[in-house]
Simulated scan of single mutants.
Amino acid sequence: MTVQQQALKDFHQAMSHFFASTHRRPTWRKAGGHEGFRIVAVKPGDVRRVSRRVGQVKIPKVGWVRFRWSRAVPDGVKSFRVTRDRAGRWHVAFAAIPNPIPAPGSGEVVGVDRGVAVAAALSTGDLLRVPGLRETERARLARLLRQLARAQRGSKRRARVKAAIARLKARETDRRKDWIEKTSTDLARRFDLFGVEDLNIRGMTRSAQGLVEAPGHNVAQKAGLNRGILAAGWGALVRRLEHKAPGRVIKIDPRNTSRTCNACGHIAGESRKSQAVFSCVACGIRVNADVNAACNIRDTAAGHAVAARGGPPLGWPVNHEPQHDLPLTG
């Protein structure tokens, strides 16, 4: 099937889903975004390896196209998609569902608290941060944004500046995706069960600009918070965990997880002294705030697992008590 035929078939399927009220109406593609096409009915000989780092894929009406062999192509793939990102790079992705990562069988439950300064804090005390742009790269990005503001619309100079900005943004995105893949794989191999907060990320990152009649407040601060949440990869981390460890991710109510002392159970907003410090007003324990929240998430997830299984999780004692092994802060 040619690219044009497949595009018409995809559009027909999208409209069928819309009329069945299962999906939204398909919209016009924005220029420069989602560039690419899909090829189905791939034959066994349409993908071949040329060398250790180079492969070739056969595209109808085009012929053999070389690509970087970054990983092994699974047997029996039926389709692939060729895309072009805003940085001008072409990618080929083969449709294949990998096998889930088996649980280690230790019965260990871990709580994951997601934040902006610390992307993921574990109940074990580990603080995981997403690698972003370096200081020199951020300075260059700021210069390019100033140049973009001064460039005339439709000029070649503006196009060159936009391409340079897209390359920097793509570099940041690649690092975040790489971190998410490695972190989710490491967690799936180390722990049996994961407790995460059930967050409405789309609602949390909604713009506060408001309307002309009712303008929003602190719009710039809210926009900065939205960028921080999206840059931390909250949704992608949990989504990849659910893919790699299906049935082992428990989402809990996020209420009071950051205000509850994991040592004594006292709930008070005054205990959260800052972004990183939790000092309980009842028992006086002083711990990392993100790790304290992660331990509360872990204990709640463990309780849900006990209720679901009718007994303690594998490897846990019957009279399990919360683990108060939080690292004290200075």
Rank of each mutant, 00 (worst) to 15 (best):
V3N: 12
V3P: 08
Q4E: 13
Q6G: 02
Q6R: 14
D10N: 11
D10L: 10
F11V: 10
F11W: 04
A14P: 00
M15R: 04
F18W: 13
T22S: 14
T22Y: 05
R25A: 11
T27W: 05
W28M: 13
G32D: 09
G33L: 13
H34C: 12
G36C: 05
R38W: 04
R38F: 06
I39Q: 07
V42L: 15
K43Y: 07
P44N: 09
G45A: 08
G45I: 00
R48Q: 11
R48W: 02
V50R: 09
R52W: 05
Q56F: 01
Q56S: 11
Q56K: 07
I59V: 15
G63R: 06
F67Y: 15
R68V: 13
S70K: 13
A72F: 00
V73M: 03
V73C: 04
G76Y: 08
F80K: 00
R81Y: 06
V82H: 05
H91K: 06
V92P: 05
F94I: 03
I97N: 10
I97H: 11
P98W: 02
N99D: 13
I101L: 02
I101F: 04
A103M: 09
P104R: 03
E108R: 15
G111Q: 01
V112E: 02
A120L: 12
S123M: 01
R129I: 14
P131N: 05
E135F: 13
E135K: 13
T136G: 14
E137A: 05
E137N: 05
A139S: 08
A139P: 04
R140W: 01
R143T: 12
L144G: 03
L144K: 04
R146L: 08
Q152S: 12
A159G: 08
A164I: 00
I165H: 01
R171F: 02
T173D: 15
K177D: 13
E181I: 00
E181G: 01
K182L: 01
T185N: 01
A188R: 01
R189F: 04
R189P: 11
R190M: 01
R190C: 01
F191C: 00
L193A: 09
E197R: 12
M204I: 09
Q209F: 09
G210C: 06
L211K: 15
L211I: 07
V212L: 11
A214N: 14
H217R: 15
N218S: 10
A220S: 12
Q221T: 11
G224F: 08
G228C: 08
G228Q: 10
L230D: 00
L237D: 06
L237T: 15
V238L: 02
V238C: 05
V238F: 03
R239Q: 14
E242H: 03
K244P: 00
P246I: 12
G247W: 06
K251Y: 08
I252E: 03
N256T: 00
C264S: 01
K273R: 14
Q275W: 09
V277P: 06
F278L: 00
V281C: 14
C283W: 01
I285D: 09
A289H: 04
A301S: 10
G303W: 05
A305K: 07
V306W: 15
V306E: 11
A308C: 04
P313L: 12
G315T: 02
V318I: 08
P322R: 02
L326R: 11
P327L: 04
